[in-house]
């Protein structure tokens, strides 16, 4: 059992993620280069944060067409767990695995601070370790985290319980305070906050451990 972390040119949270998974939680972890074509024996995929391809064109737009992501599409369709954090969330929306889009923060600032989130796990596999309406604190660090989608999509997402993570205090202007969204099947989760930076009590909290452990549950 191992987790694959996809590395793009410009990824910068890939090693943080590996440290949290393997160093803190003891979960076998491998880096996957974005130009590879197969996932081989990987059991869960993480798209880490960063600035893939320098955020050229739009955040996540070019990464969404990387060769390895064809394999990630198929992996997700087969029910494999896929987690996209920050830039990884942007990539998941650009490649069509999650609805909506992430745009410039309302106040145009890059925001880097701890954020309290409200969890409504619904059928999201990676959030089953948290209770309904549980409050967790993960750091955010983004300039383009304002979640937007068409109103009819929003109604649909809410009815199906896919709006699984919301900010207690909205930092970036996201509609309905959305911080994270999962797909209808519950195996693909994207969120702007960084659970991998909330795994070691020395760094101020370990609320993220349950989410990362669920990758290989």
């Amino acid at each position: 059992m191992s987790v694959g972390i996809v590395v793009f040119p410009g990824s910068n949270c890939d090693r943080d993620m590996a440290w949290a998974l393997e160093g803190v939680l003891g979960m076998p972890t491998r880096f996957l280069w974005h130009e590879d074509t197969g996932l081989e024996d990987i059991d869960a995929v993480v798209l880490p944060g960063g600035f893939s391809y320098g955020d050229y064109l739009r955040c996540g737009a070019l990464a969404g067409h990387a060769p390895l992501l064809h394999a990630v599409h198929a992996f997700a369709a087969d029910g494999g767990p896929v987690l996209g954090i920050c830039n990884g969330f942007q990539i998941l929306t650009e490649m069509g695995l999650l609805p909506g889009a992430l745009t410039r923060n309302r106040d145009l600032h890059f925001i880097c601070e701890p954020c309290e989130l409200i969890v409504q796990p619904g059928s999201c596999r990676l959030l089953q370790g948290y209770g309904e309406d549980a409050k967790v604190t993960f750091p955010i660090a983004h300039g383009e985290g304002c979640y937007q989608c068409p109103p009819e999509t929003l109604v649909d997402l809410e009815q199906k319980g896919q709006l699984v993570l919301r900010y207690s205090r909205n930092p970036n202007g996201s509609v309905l305070d959305i911080a994270g969204v999962c797909n209808e099947q519950g195996n693909v989760l994207g969120l702007m906050p960084h659970p991998e930076r909330a795994c070691d009590p020395l760094l101020g909290g370990d609320d993220g451990q349950s989410l990362l452990k669920a990758l290989l549950a």
């Binding site: 739009r58 929306t93 889009a101 937007q148 989608c149 068409p150």
Partner: peptide
């Protein structure tokens, strides 16, 4: 498919 994101 690439230059524009139809959502926004």
């Amino acid at each position: 498919r690439l230059l524009a994101n139809p959502v926004t």
